[in-house]
Design a protein around this nucleic acid. Structure first.
Lengths: 203, 203
DNA sequence: CCGCTAAGGGAACTGGGGTTTCGTTAGCGC
DNA sequence: GCGCTAACGAAACCCCAGTTCCCTTAGCGG
């Protein structure tokens, strides 16, 4: 049985909150690779034994942090048009990745996911939830007749985020609002052209 | 002056080749976070002092490995049509990322880039070269009249790769040939729609 | 082929990240 | 509010990644 599952109230919850906060701070300052659990314990004003007992490794700590982040997701937009909704989504992601704290945090959890299977699971579930949250934008557009009937909604949402994450992690090119808008427009154009229909693309 | 710059021949070159090979093997097996320089030295049958002296850190070693990988880049395709060239590019990237050795290696260098500024520089230059290699496909399509005159060629190429890397690093969704084709088609559709023109998108 | 010294290698050393031990605090059922 | 024990925490401990020391090998200019 996991530590903290039997008496989850009071001190246990306070310790968890303090440690996750401290872990976030440490990740933003040093990044995942230099995350020192003893340092996290010091910041949280908690015994380092506690951190090692409850979370074990840096990856375990990040996994729990991600579970915590997953609970506060922002609601999707509903502007009335596909391009409006996709732009809203792209700009939300853009602002998140550019924000110095949030951006560093996302880089850290993505790195953690490449190092640890549980962290990877948590990350994939995190994004599955986010994508599912925004998919109705596309489904509404289908119902309005803006898009082909069997358009894969999740695929369209993924297509909006992909260029932003590609720049963050791979190419290092700047991530500004104009490029977020282009990402939204590109996804919309491809969806209109029927590229994201579930059976097959147009011939 | 860097070690190995004064007598770059013979033993120095042999040691570098052996160490980079061993580093690649170790990265594929354990990933960047568990890269142990002493282990690399053992695999390369080289003194661990040598590895620490010449490369210093895991990030430094990966940076050099990336410089080595940059030298063998595959030539771009020339199928005669934009969609053909983009599909070839998407499938090349797809095969690379799915390949157990290459995929692990790319994940590792991307992780290294998030930890170390020099590694990040090396990675960004690596992708800038790859993108520049494939940009002429788009420029030819412009000349053929397939695309608007002021299409940003690099942006189109990036749009092809982005969904593949997004799945590799972020969402964890499968990366098969069909999805590579969709990525190519989506980029082509957006480019046709004028989303990637340098002045501004269509109104 | 000789000498200078760049580069490599074995071995001992060290510091701090992670573990173990055991005593203390406080959540929660009654 | 009482008692049981889950959970926390201080300190001693251990192990190994990374460093230092110093000797050996071999590239390369002459």
């Amino acid at each position: 049985m996991a530590v903290g599952a039997i008496r989850p109230g009071g001190r246990t919850a306070r310790v968890r909150a303090a440690v996750l906060k401290a872990a976030g701070d440490a990740l933003v300052e040093h990044g995942f690779d230099r995350l020192d659990l003893a340092d996290v314990a010091r910041r949280a004003e908690v015994g380092k034994t506690t951190v090692y007992r409850r979370w074990g490794t840096a990856a375990g700590l990040v996994t729990d942090l991600l579970a915590d982040m997953a609970e506060q997701s922002l609601p999707r937009a509903d502007t009335g048009s596909l391009i409006g909704d996709l732009r809203a989504n792209a700009r939300l992601v853009q602002r998140t990745l550019v924000d110095s704290r949030q951006g560093a945090l996302f880089r850290a959890v993505i790195v953690a996911a490449t190092c640890d299977l549980r962290a990877a699971d948590a990350l994939h579930r995190f994004y599955a939830v986010r994508i599912a949250e925004w998919a109705p934008c596309v489904e509404q557009a289908v119902r309005r007749g803006e898009l082909p009937p069997d358009t894969d909604a999740a695929e369209v949402i993924r297509a909006v985020s992909a260029p932003l994450y590609y720049r963050l992690l791979v190419s290092g090119d700047p991530i500004d609002e104009a490029m977020a808008d282009r990402a939204a427009e590109a996804a919309a154009a491809a969806a209109h052209a029927g590229v994201f229909t579930q059976t097959s693309g147009p011939d």
